[in-house]
Design a protein around this nucleic acid. Structure first.
Length: 419
DNA sequence: TCTGGGGTCCTAGGACCC
DNA sequence: TCTGGGGTCCTAGGACCC
């Protein structure tokens, strides 16, 4: 048996944990730039606030119904996530951290202790000790655990646990789950499935698995098996190395000129390079892209992107920034209103695995010692105490965050995006 | 005026190899 | 008369997740 532990309304719950006045109040959390709703408390859901609602469309209603809104505070949520996962490991020996607010856990053998009692006790303690309410679903496969988790949240909210441990329960649960609520089935596939007369998870669980592969893909085939109780997606106890590290952000004010865009790009590059070093990795290449406002009906649209390779795999911020800047210059064209710029570090490898370049003599030793001091100063004194000149000082491209909560659980030097 | 950001995996097609 | 078969690697695009 596999369980999934999922935090309820995670970002909204984090805001509440340190602000008790928000208990039982409608609370929403906004995306970057305070643009759209990305988390809602139950009270906010009950008032009809939908997921991804544009903030400007609900401003009126928020005032009227006294709904509290917060800019997203990923420093806080990330730290809370770490704490919850540490607590989880007290109860389960094999844990796969799946996302910021979800972990899969191995429940093998727990039947001997009374599975329900054990899981219920874990759920109550994780909730109490972290301050963030969680739900646990358990089933024979990851996909069934996700189905069980939905039921725990919807039908057994105060208990917070649901276990699919008989075939009768499995069939009933699948019949009560729309096919688009199945893990791995998104909007596009739902439309195609509906057109073929498949509406709920049970319908999907009884199709021929070869048909699923031929008409969709091996992924949907696995989903069908998983719904039948045959496990195809194993617990991944060892977190695989990242393949890419990316950062893109929309500008607080849309930009037309190269200079501020280059400045924003340099700052995003500094952030991804820090992340890269924290994970003891090197980047072999980078991708840079630009985007205009795709919601505009009148603006000319332009979404260029470009890939380039580094001379040698590197984590040296000044080099990555200059490389990113070159890439930007190659794709930037005057005459467009730009909404965002982004960078992705690609071809990642471990620090010890970087292949040298016969034709390029780079003084890695010197770079390593410089960047170590660089990181040390910034760790002790706050991000960007020392920075590359290209990062600039104007920051008029910076995203909007007008309702940011406090960094309740972290030090100044842990703060990454705020200055 | 105004709609997020960071990831993964699979597939098809093109270029190339012998 | 009439032009193979088996393979790899890379990229772009599409789908999905939270």
């Amino acid at each position: 048996m596999i369980g999934i532990i999922d935090c309820n309304n995670f970002y909204a719950s984090c805001e509440r944990t340190f602000n008790p006045a928000l208990q039982n109040q409608p609370v929403v959390v906004f995306s970057n730039n305070d643009g759209a709703v990305i988390a809602r408390s139950e009270e906010a859901k009950a008032l009809g606030i939908t997921m991804a609602a544009p903030v400007f469309k609900i401003k009126e209603m928020m005032k009227l119904k006294q709904i509290q809104g917060f800019s997203s505070n990923y420093t806080l949520y990330g730290d809370m996530s770490k704490r919850i996962k540490a607590i989880t490991r007290n109860f389960f020996s094999a844990v796969e951290d799946y996302s910021i607010d979800e972990s899969f856990v191995d429940c093998k053998g727990l039947q001997l202790l009374n599975l329900y009692n054990y899981v219920k006790d874990a759920r109550d303690k994780i909730t109490q000790w972290s301050g963030v309410p969680v739900s646990i679903g358990v089933g024979a496969t990851k996909t069934l655990a996700k189905v069980a988790n939905r039921i725990a949240k919807k039908q057994y909210r105060s208990i917070g646990v649901y276990i699919i441990d008989t075939d009768e329960k499995r069939i009933e649960a699948l019949k009560n789950t729309n096919v688009n609520d199945v893990w791995g089935v998104g909007g596009r596939i739902t439309a195609k499935l509906n057109a073929k007369g498949i509406y709920n998870a049970f319908d999907l669980s009884v199709v021929d698995t070869n048909w699923a592969k031929a008409n969709f893909s091996v992924l949907l085939q696995k989903t069908v098996y998983e719904l039948q109780g045959i496990s195809c997606i194993p617990l991944e106890l060892q977190t695989p190395n990242k393949q890419v590290i990316a950062s893109q952000k929309s500008f607080g004010v849309f930009q037309t000129e190269l200079e501020p865009i280059a400045e924003a790009l340099a700052n995003y590059t500094a952030r991804v390079a820090e992340k890269l070093r924290k994970q003891k990795m090197l980047a072999g290449g980078i991708q840079v892209w630009l985007g205009t406002n795709n919601f505009s009906k009148t603006d000319k649209q332009y979404f260029p992107k470009i890939n380039t390779m580094c001379n040698v795999p590197t984590d040296y911020t000044p080099y990555l920034i200059s490389k990113a800047n070159q890439a930007l210059n190659a794709i930037y064209k005057k005459g467009y209103v730009y909404k965002r710029v982004g960078i992705m570090l690609t071809h990642l490898c471990h620090q010890t695995d970087g292949t040298l370049n016969l034709f390029y003599n780079q003084n890695r030793k010197r770079e390593i010692s410089i960047i170590k001091q660089f990181d040390k100063i910034n760790r002790l004194n706050g991000t960007d105490t020392v920075k590359v000149a290209q990062q600039g000082f104007k920051n008029n491209w910076h995203m909007k965050q007008e309702n940011l909560s406090q960094f309740y659980t972290t030090r100044l030097s842990d703060i990454i995006d705020i200055k």
